[in-house]
């Protein structure tokens, strides 16, 4: 059936996102992997809403909330990264020691 395939696909996206979030040395790439994780959550919401809850559409509404939170995160994240880049001339995660002064 289609449901298990979609759940496997979203589990794959989630684990790839976790892997990239931990191992990436670039902050912008870490933001991209965070978007992957949020999208895997959204796929699960929309699939369960399509198959199990065909009238109430609560999964669609919750996925819209997740999209709004991701938009807020994508507005905040590059602002912080550009502020760090202006002070440090680098966007590597292991070199950001701004609290060290």
């Amino acid at each position: 059936m289609m449901l298990e395939h979609v759940l496997v696909l979203s589990a794959y996206l989630f684990s790839i996102g976790i892997y990239g979030l931990i191992t990436s040395r670039n902050m912008v790439r870490a933001l991209m992997c965070l978007e992957l994780i949020l999208n895997s959550v959204n796929i699960n919401f929309v699939t369960f809403s399509d198959i199990f809850d065909n009238r109430q559409l609560r999964g669609d509404i919750f996925s819209i909330f997740v999209i709004a939170i991701a938009a807020a995160e994508a507005a905040i994240g590059p602002a912080i990264i550009s502020s760090i880049y202006r002070n440090r001339k680098s966007t590597r995660i292991n070199q950001s020691n701004l609290l060290n002064k």
Partner: peptide, 28 residues
């Protein structure tokens, strides 16, 4: 069958967030 979420995904993610990330990559 979730057309509204598809449109929101296409507008917000591809149109706004991805463009913002590409802008951040090119800026830094």
């Amino acid at each position: 069958n979730s057309y509204f979420v598809a449109a929101a995904q296409l507008l917000i993610y591809v149109g706004a967030i991805n463009v913002l990330i590409i802008f951040a990559v090119m800026f830094m």
